[in-house]
Design a protein around this nucleic acid. Sequence first.
DNA 1: AGGAATTTGTGCGTATGTATC
DNA 2: AGATACATACGCACAAATTCC
Lengths: 233, 233
Amino acid sequence: MPRTGSLPIYQQISELIVRDVASGRLADGMKLAPEREMAAELGIAVGTLRKALADLEEKGILERVQGSGNYIRAKADVDSLYAFFRLERPEGGGLPTAEVLSVTRMEKPADLPAFGTSPEAHRIRRLRRLSGEPAAVEEIWLDASYATRITAEELSESLYLYYRRTLGLWVQRAEDRIGLGEVPDWAPAAFGPRPGAAAPVIERQSRAQDGRVAEVSRSWFDWEKARYVARLK
Amino acid sequence: MPRTGSLPIYQQISELIVRDVASGRLADGMKLAPEREMAAELGIAVGTLRKALADLEEKGILERVQGSGNYIRAKADVDSLYAFFRLERPEGGGLPTAEVLSVTRMEKPADLPAFGTSPEAHRIRRLRRLSGEPAAVEEIWLDASYATRITAEELSESLYLYYRRTLGLWVQRAEDRIGLGEVPDWAPAAFGPRPGAAAPVIERQSRAQDGRVAEVSRSWFDWEKARYVARLK
DNA sequence: AGGAATTTGTGCGTATGTATC
DNA sequence: AGATACATACGCACAAATTCC
């Protein structure tokens, strides 16, 4: 594992393992080889490997247990973001799924914050469910510079997984703002609250590995069926 | 800096610096001595110091700049929690302050989630402002096991600073749930929204160093004057 | 403008402590 | 109790970014 391109070795290793998890070569619960053995196989120092593993632990896809081993933890798919920001039922928990309503490439509307390099963006509208119950509607704007064309069929349940696997786009940081808004008129009837009704709104800005804002989104959620949870540390 | 008690050296150093910031010996913007110099003074290895500094950076109270130096970043006091979860004005920014409305020791009401070891808790009600403008009202329940008596006078602007300095209580983790609720009837007139009006609600559970939930709180905010911001990574 | 000095970032190897099996 | 495996700590060398002259 030489220092070929530009990324530090520990980051290359970290991303290598994330890709292995995403591709299924490493599944939830699997135990990694001992650090010394692993480091030897990769041809790097133990300390370097440990830095990569610490990174994965921070991302929430690895659990490190002293005296025991390193274990893959990839329950709710690999989406590490949702380990921090997630929708859940008022009583806690709930299995999140997503249904793509539409995907359209179009000019960025003026009411969006400035982001990306293209004047156009892909607008993705989704209905999000928790254990089958419609819980939120969301509108995502992905800068058009990352893909020329996107179809609803190719989008997986996890957008971030799709970004990573198909577009090579990694969301590194995200910032959410919560306020109050009105349910948009395109919300399907299955979503309980009617258009115009008051609903909490989450506005997200996601930054890619290059530091640029690649995606902005707005989510309106049904406060009787869902809570938005943010966790620190 | 020997390995006296039980805590690792790098954690001891990290907390030492946090205390220095909290006490004012280290102020916002100050530049620390070079790592090698600092490590020599403390009698530890550079790598160990670097781990402590990395910890502080994660907490948001230190900025590390390659080729330049390490700088204290303690804008909105030392409250590292608000570096991740914070209220700000819709257009961004705003200086947060807090006015204590009342402090009462009483039985925990039944509608609170179970927490702490005591049947009683201190109920603290505050009016929070952003650059002087009332932005939120909040009700905090601190388990009575941490203090026998609390007066409004002794509470500082930052509750977490008070917890740390006076009670020896460190908030290690926090989880926020955001939903929709009604402004409580005790909200002062200065807070724009009238009691009963719809407002976004933040329900927080804070865990102390012992892993127990020490405090739960509810905040209602004026969505025209404030946004709740959560940042990841 | 540009090069040297300074300072943090990355990487390696090793020794010892501590938790788990 | 012994073996295994991760955690902490040390020290050194070089790279990369910044600062200073």
